[in-house]
Structure formats: structure tokens, C-alpha cells
């Protein structure tokens, strides 16, 4: 198995956190993993993205020219990355912000209103965790339990109440995806 995912969005949407928490979880589950954030000038202008590679064996390249999954949190990211996803791959779209749809017919995509769901449960900043719920429901790369455990450990014990909101956010995203499928 070798699965590569790109997470992309505005800075502040928690895009790097999505990738990092997934990577952490994959590591805890015993997988080989690499996490590569965009850096330097790429980060200027408010966009952020990262690539996560998860596999059974040593990972050759942490870069991905044809990722299996792409999670886009804002419209510019959809335009930048929709053509990169491998044929047959999957796009996850934050439909609260992104109003357009990918034009490619050889991939599938899911629209998750993650910002709205996050607001409903009381914290718009948990939009990324909502998306992770949907992402993990669909991809099954790691189990929901393992993911939440990793999320808790990467967020640190100080943010106990934040973790409660994140649990809720994750569950809502997960559930939303189950209903979509």
C-alpha cells in the first residue's frame, strides 16, 4: 500500500494540522509515513498545503505528482490541485467555501460543507476536523478511534475543551460522509 494525500487551503484553516495529525496517526498505527509542508515563498500570500504519504514500506518520495486523495478547503486550491489527482482518485471539497466543481470526469469528488457544520457545532475553526471525519470515513486509511487519539496527543492535554469540540466535529464530518455514500 502507498497512499498519497494533499491537503490545501488558506493559512489558518488548519490545513497543516490535518496532514500532521493524519501522519501522526499513521505512524502510531505502524505505517511508514512522510509529511511534507509547502514552504518559503509558496506559503506567502496566505495559501498552505502539505503532502502526506502513507505506506507499508519505506517511502521513496514525500512529494506527490499524482496523489490518490486531495482535500481542498478553499477555491484557489481546487483550481491549483484538481488536475493533479490521479485518475480514479478522490477530491474532498469544502463546499461551504468552494462553489465550483471539478471539471474532470475520471475522478470522484465529495462536497462537504465543513465550515457550516463546524459553525453548527459551535466552533467555525473546527472545520478542518469535520473534513478529517469525512476523509477518514471515506478512505479508511486509519480508524476513527486511532485518529482521535492522535489528534488529542498532537494538540496537547492543555486544550481539553478544544478536544471535546474536535470530537464532535470529527463525528459530524464522519456522519455526513456516511449519509453521502
Amino acid at each position: 500500500m502507498l497512499v498519497k494525500t494533499i491537503f490545501a487551503g488558506f493559512g489558518g484553516q488548519g490545513v497543516l494540522m490535518m496532514g500532521f495529525s493524519l501522519s501522526h496517526c499513521a505512524m502510531s498505527e505502524g505505517y511508514e509515513v512522510t509529511f511534507l509542508p509547502a514552504y518559503g515563498a509558496e506559503m506567502r500570500g496566505g495559501t498552505a498545503n502539505c503532502t502526506v504519504a502513507i505506506g507499508d514500506e519505506e517511502i521513496a518520495s514525500p512529494i506527490s505528482s499524482e496523489p490518490n486523495y486531495i482535500v481542498v478547503m478553499n477555491t484557489p486550491s481546487l483550481y491549483s490541485f484538481q488536475n493533479k489527482v490521479v485518475s480514479g482518485g478522490v477530491l474532498f471539497i469544502n463546499s461551504s467555501i468552494i462553489k465550483s466543481e471539478p471539471r474532470r470526469k475520471d475522478i470522484s469528488f465529495y462536497k462537504i460543507p465543513s465550515s457550516e457544520i463546524a459553525e453548527q457545532i459551535g466552533n467555525s475553526r473546527a472545520s478542518n476536523t469535520v473534513m478529517m471525519g469525512a476523509f477518514i470515513q471515506k478512505t479508511g486509511i486509519v480508524s476513527p478511534e486511532a485518529y482521535l487519539k492522535s489528534l488529542e496527543s498532537v494538540m496537547g492535554s492543555k486544550k481539553k475543551n478544544v478536544m471535546d469540540i474536535n470530537r464532535k466535529a470529527f463525528a459530524s464530518g464522519y456522519e455526513y460522509m456516511s449519509r453521502l455514500l
Binding site: S23, M27, V33, F35, P62, I63
Partner: peptide
């Protein structure tokens, strides 16, 4: 190189 410096691994 920049990739080794920027990437995360266990």
C-alpha cells in the same frame, strides 16, 4: 537538501 529539511518522518 530542502526536502530533507522540510519533511517530517517518524
Amino acid at each position: 537538501d530542502g526536502m530533507m529539511g522540510q519533511m517530517m518522518e517518524p
